[in-house]
């Protein structure tokens, strides 16, 4: 029974292995800049998984905002707040043990749930190749403007979109206010 290798699955396994391995590395490493680096690799591999699932716009968005924006911001924060040359904060072995035990239990439950529904086990290769390749960017844009093109009775997201826009503005102002330099006090410290 030598079945040919199904290549999308091969790439799925590759990307998911990278994503999972570096996610574990994020937990294990004590050095916070390495954590950020592993997180970048994990999130980039997740973007690869998004591309594989046909969500090309979300994948590019993930690369741009998450990896290129949010994480650069995080590393920037790490550098601004570092006291030693290489900051690392150790956790006690007991805490780590409890957390890992609970985590493994949680994972077993989640994975069991995910595997227990037969409809979620995937389709046959023929069915998958019959699915047309459709670009997602324009339908997503229409959806954000309230007009859904993929189904007649699905709702648009105009209000959500507007709320998030205002929210982002508020966040921008709020973050700038919170992080501003505090006049005299700061000068003295420096």
């Amino acid at each position: 029974m030598e079945a040919p290798i199904y290549w999308p699955t091969f790439f799925f396994l590759l990307f998911s292995a990278i994503a999972c391995a570096f996610a574990v590395a994020v937990v294990v490493t004590p050095n916070i800049v390495r954590m950020a680096f592993y997180l970048v690799l994990s999130l980039a591999a997740t973007a690869g998984l998004f591309f594989l699932a046909g969500a090309d716009f979300v994948g590019a968005m993930q690369l741009m905002i998450y990896v290129g924006g949010t994480l650069v911001l995080l590393v920037f924060g790490v550098m601004l707040t570092s006291q030693d040359r290489f900051i690392s904060m150790k956790t006690s072995g007991f805490e780590l043990g409890v957390a890992v035990t609970l985590g493994v239990c949680l994972f077993v439950v989640l994975a069991y749930c995910a595997r227990s529904i037969p409809e979620w086990h995937g389709m046959k290769a023929k069915q998958v190749s019959a699915v047309p390749l459709e670009p997602t960017a324009a339908p997503l844009g229409m959806g954000l403007l309230g007009a859904r093109v993929d189904g007649p009775d699905r709702s648009g997201y105009l209000l959500v979109f507007e709320i998030i826009s205002v929210h982002l503005l508020v966040v921008l102002v709020g973050a700038a206010y919170l992080a501003r330099a505090r006049g005299k006090k700061n000068l003295l410290v420096e």
Binding site: C20, V104, A111, G122
Partner: peptide
């Protein structure tokens, strides 16, 4: 390796990320 993946495969990967 020979069959297409399904939702559950993605869910397991998502679970790993979540737990981590």
């Amino acid at each position: 390796l020979t069959e297409p993946v399904g939702v559950s495969h993605y869910l397991v990967v998502g679970a790993v990320l979540f737990v981590c």
